[in-house]
């Protein structure tokens, strides 16, 4: 069932309820939440305490390895990698979340309409969704960026739109499946027998019951968004230098791999830790909501 029965104990404050929820939550949820909170904290406050500036050069000997002063080393231009990773946190997180959210909204609306209204509208939307999913997502992202032209290249808005473009059809497919499933349940039939319109049924009956699916779907996609954005950056189609986007930094420093692997591993493992956190959080969330996560979806 979908509802998370969180029975209220009498005389319990909000904090006690949160504490009780926390104690009972699965381990994956708790670890994931902690990792995420650390990332969010760094993203929010990082620019104020990062040891060096975003593009500050000459902070140390270029290509120096790991040291206390430069935990992730120094790049070719003498910039401190650790500081750049810290400065980049909010960029990665904001781009991921807003792109995924936009994809979720578009996907959910299209999916619910397609699944509930049915008929030719459903058929057409389904074919369109299917066609968009058939283009490997990285390829779709790359041609969309190429098509956007030079004015938009490297702009955050382009990245957000591309993430949404890649995710919307995949989320729509999930939302449609959920809508079709829910629409066959008797309470929806009851609403139709009352004469409620499609919009009202979708808002009152479908959406609340699909929210669990959509929430997990959002978390799952958000977990992969940093990888997608990083891949684009890595291939040179994402953010432009000197933006401290982690994928881009890995690509820039790969030339130094033999001399100073830490310049690549620093941003790389930071990126991986964010994704691990998001995945653990999603896994825990799905367990709480009583579903199994379907992770593979190319």
């Amino acid at each position: 069932m979908m509802a998370v029965a969180q029975p209220t104990m009498p005389g319990e404050s909000r904090w006690e309820r949160v504490a009780r929820f926390w104690r009972r939550a699965p381990n994956s949820f708790r670890i994931g939440a902690v990792v995420l909170l650390i990332h969010l904290f760094v993203a929010a406050t990082g620019p104020f305490w990062a040891p060096y500036g975003l593009s500050q050069m000459g902070t140390g000997i270029p290509l120096a390895g790991m040291s206390w002063a430069h935990p992730f080393g120094v790049d070719q231009l003498g910039r401190d990698i650790f500081s750049r990773v810290v400065h980049g946190a909010h960029i990665v997180i904001l781009l991921s979340l807003s792109g995924t959210f936009l994809g979720l909204v578009i996907g959910a609306v299209v999916g619910l309409i397609s699944g509930y209204v049915g008929g030719w509208i459903d058929e057409i939307l389904q074919r369109l969704i299917e066609a968009l999913i058939s283009i490997p997502f990285l390829v779709l992202a790359l041609i969309a960026i190429a098509a956007a032209g030079p004015q938009l290249a490297g702009q955050p808005i382009l990245i957000i739109l591309v993430v949404a473009l890649v995710y919307a059809p995949r989320i729509a497919r999930m939302a449609r499946a959920a809508a079709v499933d829910i629409a066959t349940r008797d309470f929806v039939t009851v609403a139709r027998l009352r004469g409620e319109g499609a919009w009202s049924v979708m808002r009152r009956e479908l959406l609340p019951n699909a929210s669990g699916v959509l929430l997990v779907e959002f978390a799952l996609r958000a977990g992969y968004a940093p990888v997608l954005i990083g891949s684009l950056g890595f291939l040179g189609f994402g953010m432009r230098p000197p933006t401290p986007e982690w994928g881009l930094m890995i690509s820039e420093n790969r030339a130094l791999l033999i001399v100073s692997p830490v310049t690549v591993l620093g941003p790389g493992l930071t990126l991986a830790s964010l994704v691990v956190g998001l995945n653990l959080f999603t896994d825990g969330l799905a367990r709480i909501l009583g579903r199994t996560v379907r992770l593979a979806d190319a």
């Binding site: 979908m2 509802a3 349940r185 008797d186 027998l193 009352r194 004469g195 009956e205 609340p208 929210s211």
Partner: peptide, 28 residues
């Protein structure tokens, strides 16, 4: 079809389903 009926007709004919687990919206 139910869509073609007046609200009054829809009110006068009510349906009770076999399985109450499915006929009540779990989120309401």
């Amino acid at each position: 079809s139910v869509g073609a009926r007046s609200s009054e007709l829809r009110r006068r004919i009510q349906y009770i389903f076999q399985n109450p687990d499915a006929s009540l919206n779990p989120r309401m």
